[in-house]
Design a protein around this nucleic acid. Structure first.
Lengths: 198, 198, 198, 198
DNA sequence: TCGTAAACGAGACGGTACGTCCAGTCTTTTT
DNA sequence: AAAAAGACTGGACGTACCGTCTCGTTTACGA
């Protein structure tokens, strides 16, 4: 009887110390937060994680990749609020949460990741799948609940609706031409779904 | 007798060769287009412009600044179409033009500049003023013409409307989760101004 | 009854696979021949011997040590010719054989070992005892046979005579200022023992 | 009127600071003396010369090359003694000087350079031309003076004679099977030129 | 026959040095 | 006085090996 019936290959060689990976990501995240992307150098990570440079390269191919991993690992996607409420106010709450994050220092990290993603397809893919897609999924689910609850009229094109909701948020985050306030989010939501409100 | 009697200080020493500045910007733009931001190094610019490194530093403080200058210099803002037409179709045409640019290779340069702007306030300001603001101004003008022509209802918050138009465009450009097609622009415009259409 | 009554401790655990040692030495020798000393890395040996790095360290302390072992193992000392002949011509034959080896690609390995010996006492000792001494012993024996046969006058200082014979050979091998030809060996021998020829 | 009439191109750009080169060589020499070849790393040189790593690479291609340059720069070739004397005793004096150097710690540097020369043709050439050849030239000149003075019979092959003199010295230096004493040199010289002594 | 102990492969890990690239600055000569 | 060229410091890059370690697996022997 095989010990490992399914897919995973039996572990060969010395297993990785999980603390190593964790230390690297924590260090990277810290560097990212103050200092931004340019502060996330392999050198600095190694230093502050108490890890050797080659070890980092054993996990990731370059510094931005570590930064992205750190970002995605430590940035929870939009979680459904624990408080039960009607779908529309849950939607509002979710977007407020995202907007708050964007307005907070953490927003700079998001912006940094968007920037990082512009110069490496691999990072772009990771960011898209792990951050963008998750946020869209969460919001899409709520929109569908709204429709089911008849709180809003069914949108013709739900993906476009998502673009209309997230687009302006990222636009303000990245261009900085105007602040991301709660009232901004409110007006944004109003505008996007008003046409279909009963 | 001074050559420049009035405000400007009399030019002393060897005058700057205007071709130098041009050569640098052209080289930077070329590097930006293929290779992206990371290819725009002072080293490479100097090389391909046939100019010495210190000379470049005499004009700009660092490589991204040159890239930004090159981008802004060679990227015309949205121009009003020469053909006279009604305001609404002019608006559509303008956004189509922008979308086409975003979809073309040049879109990568825009994305690169957004990325560059994330790590330097100075660049962010330049980009905002020279690119973002210009585009918003042009579109705002058309929107106002639409209102004047009674083609659309006056929007409550015109800045928000602009965010709703540009946000999704940049969002798709930067995240790449979906293509920027003509139909996308059409549906976007429809959605944003439908509520106010007569 | 213990298998090894005397000094050695009874073999416990899995015995060493003799093929392992052989594979390592063969790989090391091959690497040494093309590539020289710098090519003999533990990494490369392990790779081409199909052996893990720690295994090599179980046998030798470092890469030059493996190289030296490989060299000494696969390089026979000057053998007495099978054909019986008079002592003087046997001496000549022996030195010609050495000179031929020096002139051949194998000479580069000898030079590499001399070089290796310069930075590690342990290697120096091994090389001296296993290569230098053996060659001197063989030649000393022949010189003594020559004396016994009255082919040459007894040298005052036989060690100096050996230095006079071997010194120039190594000197040319290592400095490369002149080739190691057969005629060179002939003239060398003539010169060294002429004074004492009958 | 050209400032530099002959071959050299007029110096463009900032000239090299001669102290930089000197500092590097001094540091390299010091490292070579204690620590041997393996201690001469670019890293260490840069450190102790107060110079950056890339600067060293601007002068030499790798660490052994710096070591060789340092060795050759700071190791004067055998100089003719200032005291006037007859050719034969001058010859003896010269070889004694070399032997003393070989026996001293500096001898280790010579050995290190021989070793270094075994793995790079470029270094071998430099060492041969700057060290080996110079020593041979000096001794050849004295041998010729001896012949002119009729102190010794003209050797049939003066290059072979030089090999007979230097070979055993290097042989002992590199193999370490016997010390390089003054008496060794005396007996060596006796042996090599006795045959031709009047 | 069944532990036990070593051999062995695999790979993690901290290190050290490598050789390179680029950034900025400084020091010259040339225009 | 600017431009042009190149020296120079300095920081980080990504890679190659090193030597040690920690595993899991294999193989022989001896109890």
């Amino acid at each position: 009887m095989p010990r490992q019936a399914s897919s995973a290959p039996p572990v060969r060689g010395r297993p990785r110390d999980p603390r190593t990976r964790a230390a690297i990501l924590i260090a990277a995240r810290a560097l990212l937060e103050r200092g931004g992307l340019t502060a996330v150098t392999i050198e600095a990570i190694a230093q502050s994680a108490g890890v050797s440079r080659p070890t980092i390269y054993r996990y990731w191919p370059n510094a931005p990749a570590v930064a992205m991993a750190a970002f995605l690992e430590t940035t929870g996607a939009a979680e459904a609020s624990s408080k039960p409420r009607n779908a529309l106010s849950a939607l509002r709450a979710q977007l407020h949460a995202l907007a708050d994050a964007f307005a907070a220092p953490a927003g700079r990290s998001v912006a940094a990741m968007v920037a990082a993603a512009q110069s490496e397809t691999e990072l772009a893919k990771a960011f898209r799948n792990e951050f963008i897609a998750r946020n869209r999924d969460a919001t899409r689910a709520l929109l569908e609940r709204c429709v089911a609850d008849k709180a809003i009229e069914p949108p013709e094109d739900i993906e476009l609706t998502l673009d209309l909701v997230f687009g302006p948020l990222f636009y303000r985050l990245l261009m900085g031409h105007a602040p991301i306030t709660r009232s901004f989010v409110d007006r944004l939501v109003d505008q996007v779904i008003r046409a279909r409100c009963t």
